[in-house]
Amino acid sequence: MVAPNHTIPGLRLSGEFSYNERPLFRDLVLELLPGSWTCLLGSSGIGKSTLLRLIAGLETGGSFSGSISASDDLPVDGRVAYMAQSDLLLPWLTVRQNVSLGASLRRELQDHVKTDYLIHRVGLEEYMSSKPGQLSGGMRQRCALARTLMEDTPLVLLDEPFSALDPATRRQMQALASSTLQDRTVLLVTHDLAEALRLGRRVYAMTQGKLQQFDLPTCQSIRELDDPAIMDIQSRIFSVLNA
């Protein structure tokens, strides 16, 4: 299902952004490593989601000058899948129709085999014909994940997708997302330090218009946080965020 690694580009954003003439950040550089997870940490209102929306090409309400480019020099536009805190499932469509929404909107041929495979992968095969209103919060987010995977884009932008879930469901979703998106270039915006350390290959801590970069050792799946090296990074990020 997943394209070979060499076709997955990294991404670089650099520039400045102002909102109502007030600069939100200047000379900022954000680099996403190809085929791995980058987490963007910071408190609410600091501009994390703005960065993500800039990459996704979505309305931000401010003005950006700078560049956003993929490492393979192909346009970023059209190669991005987006998943938000709210699952954004269309309540009038079934789980199956929601998962294949992208193809339906673009009037492309539906790939039923792939749709069913991905629904199976997120464990919703018994709910294919259910509408979102009949699902729990965790199930809805799993359906949204399947929809994101269905888009099969090399770049995946996750805007606090797990923050509305209870702790147990959140851990399950993190594991599921980590395994299903392991070869993509992922940007995860979160305010949960543990989540960033568990999932990220690289973590950016964002404070008042600045980014501080922390690279973590590679890890096959979800990282356990009791490793002394990780605990050290954790305390460094913590002190940056609270400075």
Binding site: V80, G102, L105
Partner: peptide
């Protein structure tokens, strides 16, 4: 609408 935009919906 954000979702539709990233899905390149006409």
């Amino acid at each position: 609408l954000d979702l539709a935009h990233t899905m390149r919906s006409p």
